[in-house]
Amino acid sequence: MTRFQPGEIVNITIKGVRIARPRSATAVTITDEHGVTYQMPPQAAVEPVAPAEWPPQVGDVWRDHEGDLWFTQELLEENGSQVVFAPAQSGEYGHSDADPDDALRRYGPMTLVYRKLVELDGGESR
Score class of each variant (00 low, 15 high):
25 A>Y: 04
57 Q>T: 10
113 V>S: 01
103 A>G: 11
43 Q>W: 11
80 G>M: 13
88 A>M: 03
48 P>S: 07
65 H>K: 14
50 A>Q: 12
99 D>I: 01
7 G>S: 11
24 S>V: 01
60 D>Y: 02
15 K>F: 11
53 E>D: 15
7 G>V: 03
21 R>C: 02
1 M>N: 06
20 A>Q: 14
23 R>E: 14
125 S>G: 06
20 A>K: 14
84 V>T: 01
28 V>I: 13
57 Q>Y: 10
59 G>K: 01
98 A>P: 00
40 M>S: 10
49 V>A: 15
72 T>P: 00
99 D>R: 00
81 S>F: 11
75 L>D: 12
21 R>P: 00
105 R>Q: 14
16 G>L: 12
30 I>S: 09
44 A>G: 01
38 Y>L: 14
44 A>T: 01
21 R>F: 04
91 G>H: 07
52 A>Q: 12
89 Q>P: 00
5 Q>I: 09
122 G>K: 02
115 R>T: 03
48 P>Q: 05
26 T>F: 09
19 I>R: 13
51 P>H: 10
91 G>R: 06
84 V>I: 07
32 D>L: 08
21 R>E: 10
83 V>N: 01
40 M>I: 03
84 V>M: 06
5 Q>E: 15
103 A>Q: 04
62 W>S: 02
96 S>E: 12
86 A>P: 00
111 T>L: 09
41 P>G: 12
53 E>F: 08
42 P>I: 05
17 V>N: 11
39 Q>F: 05
122 G>N: 03
57 Q>L: 14
37 T>M: 10
1 M>F: 08
93 Y>K: 15
42 P>Y: 06
50 A>I: 03
50 A>E: 13
4 F>E: 12
5 Q>L: 13
14 I>P: 01
12 I>S: 05
117 L>I: 02
74 E>A: 15
5 Q>C: 08
49 V>H: 14
95 H>Q: 11
64 D>R: 04
88 A>S: 03
89 Q>G: 01
71 F>A: 00
80 G>S: 13
79 N>E: 15
108 G>D: 04
60 D>E: 05
124 E>G: 12
58 V>Q: 15
108 G>Q: 04
104 L>P: 00
33 E>P: 06
34 H>F: 15
60 D>R: 00
89 Q>K: 07
21 R>V: 05
75 L>V: 09
3 R>A: 10
94 G>P: 06
73 Q>N: 05
120 L>C: 08
51 P>L: 10
76 L>C: 03
95 H>A: 09
124 E>F: 12
125 S>D: 07
67 G>S: 10
68 D>M: 12
8 E>Y: 11
16 G>I: 07
21 R>Q: 08
49 V>R: 15
122 G>C: 03
93 Y>W: 14
49 V>K: 14
86 A>I: 03
9 I>P: 04
81 S>Y: 11
14 I>V: 09
15 K>P: 06
70 W>N: 00
95 H>D: 11
82 Q>D: 12
65 H>L: 05
27 A>H: 09
125 S>M: 14
96 S>L: 10
63 R>E: 10
109 P>Y: 15
113 V>K: 02
7 G>Y: 08
46 V>R: 03
111 T>M: 10
34 H>Y: 15
107 Y>T: 09
7 G>L: 04
30 I>K: 07
51 P>W: 11
9 I>H: 14
81 S>L: 06
34 H>V: 12
12 I>H: 03
116 K>C: 01
